[in-house]
């Protein structure tokens, strides 16, 4: 699939996108608004992007709209790739796409765990890397590197996990 054709098809399918286009390191990237995001993802899946290879979150802390969430899509037909970026404020949630690509389930859980971004409609939104009763989201820029109680003796009893 040619990306240009796909993007033209996308803008005819979803007219009011507010679509911004940028190519970074040879990989096309589009920025969409939070409102049009579910419709865009559904359309891209129908256009042939049948694999979601990763979900990435970035904390851009001084920026008013604090987070970026980037979905890396791939079409298995000809291995063309596309990055879809959506900007999320701290009090907003991203509509989950785990109903469209199953791999979004764990990817969105990871972004939720490390950055604390909510995903509405996710079937099983809980921590995946940190343990169950961990406090805070460690990849946020305002998280202290050493965490809580670093200077106190460590006790395994304080760790509760989904065993």
């Amino acid at each position: 699939m040619e990306i240009e054709k796909a993007l033209i098809a996308l803008s005819t399918e979803c007219p009011d996108l507010g679509l911004k286009r940028a190519d970074r390191h040879g990989m096309p990237e589009i920025t969409v608004s939070l409102e049009s995001f579910p419709q865009v993802m559904k359309t891209l899946r129908a256009l042939g992007f049948d694999m979601l290879s990763d979900v990435v979150g970035i904390d851009r802390m001084p920026r008013p709209v604090r987070f970026d969430v980037i979905y890396l899509l791939m079409a298995m037909e000809d291995f063309s790739r596309l990055a879809v970026k959506v900007e999320v404020a701290q009090d907003r949630e991203v509509p989950s796409v785990s109903g469209i690509w199953n791999s979004a389930n764990w990817g969105e859980r990871e972004v939720f765990d490390l950055l604390g971004i909510g995903f509405s409609g996710h079937p099983d939104l809980r921590r995946i890397l940190m343990w169950e009763n961990f406090e805070g989201h460690p990849l946020r820029k305002d998280f202290p590197l050493e965490g809580k109680d670093f200077d106190k003796p460590f006790d395994t009893e304080t760790i509760k996990d989904y065993f």
């Binding site: 590197l145 050493e146 460590f154």
Partner: peptide
């Protein structure tokens, strides 16, 4: 690894 995720020495446990 002076960090939130790592035990600072196995002798702590």
């Amino acid at each position: 690894f002076k960090s939130y995720a790592v035990v600072q020495g196995a002798d702590q446990i």
